[in-house]
């Protein structure tokens, strides 16, 4: 049987995850000197580097057993897997933001909202009983209200610095975000001991 395969989101979460693996006593030499390789041995495991959305896809289909991915991606894309641990790092939040002093909650005019996360935005406005027009934007969402395309945005806010420098501010927070460990539904049951050994290792390392 192949080694337990772990999908790790490239980029923002990578560094904190590597620190976590080292605290768990795993040898991350290969992972740190990966060059252009995409699958790397880490201790007895196989580490796969992938984009956040793909981490969900690989874990859902069972070609990877465990995944490290942000709650933002899980909330937007969804899927069938176990979301077992909140790792506590990669903290930020989803928020609605708009030009300083704007009010999007009153009046009869249809609001236009730009976002990279249409599902999150749609659920949020639905829960507020609002019917808004959503426009999907791929890059710097802050541009949309500045250019007059949208009244507000729904986006990830870390420090709020980008918003501030562009004359925008948070209107309301939607949900907190942090890195999560997800597990394939069948793997948890068919390779229970190996997966529990790994997740227990995480829990122990996090409490140190």
């Amino acid at each position: 049987m192949r080694p337990i395969r772990i999908a790790l989101t490239k980029g923002r979460l990578e560094k904190s995850a590597v620190e976590l693996f080292e605290r768990m006593g795993l040898d991350c030499t290969e992972l740190k000197n990966k060059g252009r390789r995409l699958i790397l041995p880490v201790g007895e495991y196989e580490m796969v580097l992938a984009k956040a959305n793909d981490v969900l896809t690989y874990v859902e289909h069972g070609v990877c057993d465990i995944g490290f991915v942000g709650k933002d991606t899980i909330a937007e894309k969804g899927g069938n897997f176990y979301e077992m641990l909140d790792l506590g790092f990669g903290r930020c939040r989803f928020a609605v933001a708009g030009p300083d002093g704007c009010d999007i909650f009153t009046g009869h005019r249809e609001m236009t909202v730009a976002t990279k996360y249409p599902n999150i935005a749609s659920q949020y406005f639905e829960s507020r009983g609002m019917d808004v027009r959503l426009i999907k934007i791929e890059g710097s969402v802050e541009l949309a209200p500045l250019l007059g395309l949208a009244d507000a945005i729904v986006d990830i806010v870390e420090t709020g610095q980008t918003l501030k420098e562009n004359g925008l501010s948070v209107i309301e927070e939607i949900m907190p975000i942090s890195a999560r460990t997800i597990v394939n539904v069948a793997s948890l049951k068919t390779r229970k001991n190996e997966i529990q050994k790994f997740t227990n290792g995480i829990i122990k390392a996090l409490s140190l």
Binding site: M1, G62, N184, V185, A186, K189, T190, K192
Partner: peptide
């Protein structure tokens, strides 16, 4: 044969014993 007391899928439909089967190495129920 195993147990999972946290198996609560389609709970408005199932009323008693529920079960699932897996093949080792196959990623889905």
């Amino acid at each position: 044969i195993n147990l999972d007391l946290g198996m609560v899928h389609r709970n408005n439909y199932y009323t008693g014993v529920v079960f699932r089967g897996y093949i080792n190495g196959y990623g889905n129920t």
